[in-house]
């Protein structure tokens, strides 16, 4: 759906995007993460034909940026960082304007469909300026969907929203994922990316890494299992380290933290070994590093 080849953007001497090679597949939610000023918005603007690249190329929905800009604009939807609604106009009028600009055939039908889908139908006649931030954001999502784009670019969709509003927006994104749309999600909210994204790309002027959140965790930190014991005896750590599939084991308070590649396969053996060695096991669980740990590690290593 999206394929870039050494996509580069410079503003004067400032390199904003450096030789970006990226592939986003149909129907996936792709998280595009990076610090402020990393070039995420510039990338989205290039991929939505708002600005042109300095060099390199990209194809979006099969159309080339710089050559098929009009077709790209018809085939993608964009939620910009700021909703940018016409505050003096009603929610319905706002959507009707955009439906006409996208040459939607059934303007009234589409406007009603998305106002209802995003629970804004009852407020359709109210001016957008009277809406809360979360409602404006939902209205902006409705605007991005009116022409039924196959790819949706969402730039910081929950930025500045309170937890309740952010949840409403996230639920909307979940709905869109279920509909099979391809979603390119720029976000600072790593928890959100972890919950919503099939794959993530960490970006800081150039692409640092692309993979699923689970694979990135494993690559950076390995898989870790925590055994909660009544007490940790000294011999237990050495017992575990002696096992061939255990990469590392250490005691933390009354817990044993064990690093290994295949917990599903090896946990039963470890449990047996611990019981044989006299351990009283209370709980067993996987130690899950947050995506924030992964992100910070990657950005730090650059």
């Amino acid at each position: 759906m999206i394929l870039t080849d050494k996509l580069t953007k410079k503003f004067g001497d400032n390199l904003a995007v450096d030789r970006l090679d990226l592939e986003v597949h149909e129907g996936e939610v792709f998280g595009f993460l990076g610090p402020n000023g990393a070039g995420k918005t510039t990338t989205v603007r290039m991929l939505t034909s708002l600005i042109g690249p300095t060099s390199g190329s990209a194809r979006v929905n099969g159309f080339s940026i710089g050559k098929d800009d009009t077709q790209i604009r018809y085939s993608v939807g964009i939620l910009t960082e700021s909703p940018g609604m016409y505050d003096n106009l009603s929610a319905e009028s706002n959507l009707q304007i955009y439906a006409n600009l996208y040459e939607v055939k059934d303007v009234r039908g589409q406007v009603e469909k998305y106002l209802r889908m995003l629970s804004l139908w009852d407020r359709r006649l109210d001016e957008a300026g009277t809406f809360s931030k979360g409602m404006k954001q939902k209205l902006a999502i409705a605007r991005a969907l009116l022409h039924e784009p196959r790819i949706l670019f969402l730039d910081e969709p929950t930025a500045g929203l309170d937890p309740e509003a952010a949840r409403l927006v996230r639920d909307s994104i979940e709905e869109l994922r279920k509909e099979g749309r391809t979603i390119f999600l720029c976000t600072h909210n790593l928890d959100e990316a972890d919950r919503l994204c099939d794959r993530i790309g960490v970006f800081k002027t150039h692409l640092l890494v692309v993979d699923t959140p689970a694979n990135l965790r494993t690559q950076l930190f390995g898989r870790k299992v925590v055994f909660h014991l009544r007490t940790v005896q000294e011999n237990l750590v050495s017992t575990l380290k002696a096992l061939p599939y255990v990469k590392d084991a250490k005691a933390v308070d009354n817990k044993l933290v064990v690093t290994l590649d295949d917990p599903e396969q090896n946990n039963p053996n470890i449990i047996r070994s611990l019981i044989t060695a006299g351990a009283d096991i209370q709980f067993v669980g996987e130690l899950r590093h947050s995506l924030e740990d992964v992100y910070l590690q990657l950005v730090k290593n650059n």
Binding site: L50, T70, T80, G84, L101, Y102, A140
Partner: peptide, 10 residues
Amino acid sequence: HSLEPLLATP
């Protein structure tokens, strides 16, 4: 901030 979504249309 309505210019960007406007310019993103065809």
